[in-house]
Computed example of a mutant assay.
Amino acid sequence: MRFAWRTVLGLLASACVCTTSLCVSAQNYPSRPIRVIAPWPPGSSVDLSARTVALKLNDILKTSLIIENRPGAEGAIGSALAARAAPDGYTLVWGNAATHGSNKVVFPNLGYDPVKDFTPISSVHKNILSVAVSTSLPVNTFADFLAHAKTRPGKLRYGTPGVGSPHHLTGVQLNRRAGIEILHVPYKGGGPAVTDVLGGHIELTIASLAAVIPQHRAGKIKILAVTDSVRYEQLPDIPAIAETFPGIEILGWSAVFGPANLPADITARLNAALAEALQAPEVKSTFEKAGLVASWSSAADLAKRVSAEIELWKDAVASGMKFQ
């Protein structure tokens, strides 16, 4: 019995040491570089957002955030990788409305659960989308495009970052509301879709403003409309789709998540750091030029946003929309 008591006391002492160690680890976080998985390719709005904010977080957190692009399967490859990481704050993922919303509804065998497998940390940006066409297409306005598309059902192809993205939903809504038939071509991110418009392989893209504003300003692509409820301040001559089709307001977003069971104090540390970074003038300026709007949130509000996004897509599927 004496030996048993010694064993129990030893285990209790070990537990106390381990608990203290964990507390010290959290208090000293971060003590080494942080891996940030961007599940979309370079040139996408998620990539731009992650790299812009990471530069500021490097200073705030006194460490290096290393961006790792892991695109594929509509963001599912990189997201699944992050979900399997240790919940220690040293692997994060820059998710969006697809990876942590529509994917759960559109892909039944996703490989991860956007609610159960992640710890919400904070929203980062709101992403205004656009309808952008090749300069070779004989249209100069959104009205011109609709008229042109009606005479060519099934002939015009639009690229998006993938099946089940807000960009894809915009195309589905345009087909329904405008009575046109433009064909969906999914890519592994917004950047490749824009590249194919520039190369003449497809006629148009529904892309984030971040992905097309530079080419639009250079005269290499034509932005015809935006998906917000109002015009974008930096492009006052470009109409909102809602001006023609009231009620169409489809926005993308990005947010930072950790693996499930991330300690609350680490979550709070990262949330506070993101709040500070998103207030930085250089971050706001870069976002503004790219068509993004900084959008910090509490972890709890981000959890609500994920749930709402999933419900939005459940309703879309229930209404008979096909996402292929």
Rank of each mutant, 00 (worst) to 15 (best):
V17T: 05
N175M: 02
P138C: 10
V105E: 00
P39W: 11
L61I: 02
W296H: 05
Y158C: 01
E203V: 07
P42G: 00
V256P: 00
P246N: 01
L274I: 11
L262K: 02
I182T: 14
I180D: 03
A54P: 03
P30F: 14
C18W: 14
Q215D: 14
F323Q: 08
W5H: 08
W94E: 14
S122I: 07
V230Y: 13
L292A: 12
P114F: 10
D117S: 05
D144E: 12
W40I: 13
S21Y: 14
K304R: 12
K104V: 01
P30R: 01
R32E: 10
S319T: 14
K116R: 14
P214S: 02
T170A: 02
L9R: 12
P108T: 04
N175K: 00
F142I: 00
R305N: 00
R51Q: 14
K56P: 02
A82T: 13
V212P: 01
R152V: 06
S254E: 10
Y187T: 05
G171R: 04
A26R: 08
Y158R: 07
E282N: 15
R51K: 11
Q173R: 09
N271M: 10
Y29G: 07
N127A: 15
I121F: 01
A73Q: 14
S79M: 15
L169W: 13
Q279D: 13
L92S: 12
G179Y: 05
T195G: 11
G10L: 09
L209R: 08
Y90V: 00
D47C: 09
L274N: 04
G95N: 06
V8K: 08
I121W: 03
D265R: 07
V124S: 13
S298M: 00
P42A: 09
R157T: 15
E243W: 00
D237V: 02
R2F: 10
V230C: 10
D265F: 12
V317F: 00
N271R: 01
L278H: 07
A97K: 05
K314H: 11
I34T: 03
T19M: 11
T195D: 15
A300E: 15
I202E: 04
E309R: 06
E282F: 11
G171Y: 12
I37E: 09
L61M: 08
H168P: 04
P246H: 05
R177I: 10
V163Q: 05
R84I: 03
